[in-house]
Structures are given as structure tokens and as C-alpha cells.
């Protein structure tokens, strides 16, 4: 069976740290930065567990600020 591997990029200046992508992620890939903040003072989202990402787009769909881009590859 082909394995799917995904990755996301977060536009960290646009992110407002609402945490909705972290809740929507089925594989616990995303977290909010615990210490770092962006220019507006928000704890932005990042891939804390990149190996788990399956590129399902759940995070990007629920993101209110459209700051997530999703990439996906099929491994044979």
C-alpha cells in the first residue's frame, strides 16, 4: 500500500494563534509555539511532530486566516 506523507507551512506573521488547526489535526502534528511569538504577539502554529503529517488539509480548511499551505507526496 502506498504511504502518504504530508507537510504544512504556516504563514507565521498572518497566524493569530487561535489553536483551531491544532484541534482539527487528526494526527497531533501541529502545536502552538510555546515561547516564540510573531510581530503581533501571537503564539503561532508550527509542525511540532512533522513525521505524523498525512497532508489531509484539515488544519488548512478550518484556519480562519488562510495561513496554512499543505503539501502531500505518495511514497511507493
Amino acid at each position: 500500500m502506498a504511504k502518504i506523507k504530508g507537510a504544512v507551512t504556516v504563514n507565521k506573521e498572518r497566524c493569530k494563534g487561535c489553536n483551531l488547526c491544532v484541534v482539527a489535526c487528526p494526527t497531533d502534528t501541529l502545536s502552538l509555539q510555546p515561547l516564540e511569538v510573531n510581530d503581533r504577539g501571537y503564539h503561532f502554529a508550527y509542525m511540532s511532530n512533522p513525521d505524523a503529517c498525512i497532508g489531509c488539509c484539515s488544519c488548512a480548511l478550518v484556519c480562519p486566516d488562510a495561513c496554512i499551505e499543505v503539501y502531500r507526496v505518495k511514497l511507493d
Binding site: 504530508g6 507537510a7 507551512t9 497532508g55 499551505e69 499543505v70 503539501y71 502531500r72 507526496v73
Partner: peptide
């Protein structure tokens, strides 16, 4: 993985 040809959502 993060290459333009693999992009599925933007």
C-alpha cells in the same frame, strides 16, 4: 515534500 508540485492546498 514542500515543493510547488506537491501543493494540495493554498
Amino acid at each position: 515534500i514542500i515543493r510547488p508540485e506537491n501543493k494540495v492546498y493554498a
